[in-house]
Amino acid sequence: MEDGESENLIYAIRTLVGQEKNVAKMIARNVKNSGIEVNSILVPDTLRGYILVESSSKIDMQNPALKVPNIRGSVEGQISFEEIKSFLKPEPIIASIKKGSIVELISGPFKGERAKVVRIDESREEVVLELIEAAVPIPVTVKGDQIRIIQKEAD
């Protein structure tokens, strides 16, 4: 197995949504002590409820080191390295937003509110929004990472 050109396998493990990072940290801690060949664990923000485990051998989910709370099983089959490359270099969220998109604010004083994108400032990674539920449309400027896209295109 230790032959320079490593043939790494990537598995997806299903977790409880919101517990991805905790599960990854627990697996990382267990793996160090038990000697399973896990090389890295990837937790992309865009992939809710799953973590990706890179290993040089087949992972046995029955292994006690992988008996971690909040794991909901594993996904059959492997993932090729090409497929996960997009997770490694995440493009700024702002690149996928268009004028007229419907977004939800995920932090700040308007957390949970839905808004429509009015203007995009790509250089500063800011968007100008108009809250949908507000009686009077007030433009609100927020950073690109404070929003989540709900609907990409305008109707």
Binding site: S6, N8, E20, K21, A24, K25, A28, V31, K32, E37, V38, N39, S40, I41, L42, V43, P44, D45, E54, S56, F81, I84, F87, L88, P90, D145
Partner: peptide, 15 residues
């Protein structure tokens, strides 16, 4: 944002 735990950088393609 996003978390990546590298355990064995020598053998990891991601690393």
């Amino acid at each position: 944002s996003g978390l990546l735990i590298i355990i064995d950088p020598e053998n990891s393609d991601i690393a």
